[in-house]
């Protein structure tokens, strides 16, 4: 037991040292959503550490006090049934802990889904992020440009990523900005993020999607709104337009570097939302579906804020 404890503490020390030199990615936040989650993670780590310490302390106490070598030879352990007070405690305390974490969970879950506080009034920048094997395509309908495997966003402006997939299920994840969300072929998910500071970040697909999964990453850059605007202007001045033929080529499985185009693929290949909902009803015109469908799909698709 002692060796194991020493080991545990050793590992904890390693963790602290590592955390000391350079914060772990999910704690090195660049936006309010990630910061909320980071706080939640710390609260839960601390709460849970208390639980672990109590259990380990009780265990050590039992093992040290009641080991056979410490007892007289003729000691007969007593027969003890349960005790209502003790059982009330071992039920009650976990219930309180779980209730506490439930409140945290519910509040934070609502908060990370919504547009971050203080940004509700701003018009969000809509960016469609669609995945194909094994790339990410970013379409800016407002700016009428499209990029591959990298995305620029302005700071201090809410960004609404609309996620979907051209192939398998993937998961859009920029750890320093927000938690991940799935991108699927038959629906569009929304992810609201805001970047507080200009930064270079890593994003990736975190959901296994085949051979090229490991390299399925993209770069994220947040920059001042002025610089963002001039970046857009640059693209319109220099980049080639995206044709349907070109885009079909891009969709072929494989890896591509970073690419830039004017125009978006949404013009000829709309996202699976609204009337293009991927449910492919021959007859019905919208995506008003059966109850069972709504339950397993999501509100976010139907809910236009």
């Amino acid at each position: 037991m002692k060796i194991k404890l020493a080991l545990l503490f050793g590992l904890l020390t390693i963790a602290t040292i590592l955390a000391g030199c350079e914060p772990l990615l999910v704690f090195d936040t660049k936006g309010p959503q990630a910061a909320t989650i980071s706080n939640v993670i710390w609260i839960s780590i601390i709460t849970m550490a208390v639980v672990v310490i109590v259990v380990v302390a009780l265990l050590i106490n039992m093992l040290v006090k009641y080991r056979a070598s410490k007892q007289p030879e003729d000691y007969e352990p007593p027969h003890i049934e349960g005790n209502p007070i003790v059982e009330a405690i071992i039920v009650g305390v976990p219930v309180l802990i779980v209730a506490f974490l439930s409140v945290i969970s519910v509040m934070s879950t609502y908060s990370v889904e919504a547009v971050p506080e203080g940004y509700e009034d701003q018009e969000p920048l809509v960016i469609y992020a669609s995945s194909s094997d094994w790339k990410w395509h970013f379409s800016y309908p407002e700016q009428d440009i499209e990029t591959v495997n990298y995305v620029f966003i302005p700071t201090h402006r809410p960004v609404e990523f609309r996620l979907y997939s051209h192939t398998t299920i993937s998961s859009f994840w920029i750890p320093q900005l927000a938690g991940q969300k799935y991108a699927m072929a038959d629906m569009v998910n929304k992810l609201n993020v805001v970047a507080d500071v200009p930064a270079e970040m890593i994003g990736r697909n975190s959901n296994f999607n085949g051979e090229g999964f490991a390299e399925n990453t993209f770069n994220v850059t947040s920059l001042d709104p002025d610089e963002f605007d001039s970046w857009i202007e640059d693209i319109h001045a220099t980049a080639e337009p995206l044709t349907e033929e070109e885009f079909t080529k891009l969709l072929e499985p494989g890896h591509l570097g970073q690419m830039t185009f004017t125009g978006t693929h949404l013009d000829f290949l709309p996202a699976p939302e609204g009337e293009h909902g991927g449910h492919n009803h021959g007859s019905s015109e919208t995506d008003q579906d059966s109850a069972g469908h709504e339950e397993t799909n999501t509100e976010s698709e139907h809910d236009h804020h």
């Binding site: 037991m1 194991k4 545990l8 999910v26 990630a34 909320t36 989650i37 939640v40 993670i41 839960s44 780590i45 849970m48 639980v51 672990v52 259990v55 380990v56 265990l59 093992l63 779980v98 974490l101 945290i104 969970s105 934070s108 879950t109 908060s111 990370v112 998961s171 994840w173 750890p175 927000a178 938690g179 991940q180 969300k181 975190s206 959901n207 296994f208």
Partner: peptide, 30 residues
Amino acid sequence: SVAFIPLFTIGGVTGVMLGVASADFQYHNT
């Protein structure tokens, strides 16, 4: 059995951590 108790407790509490839906957005698939 004795080693099970602390180790499983650690596994259990990290399960609770994963159960916090917002935080799971960061743990999921990792």
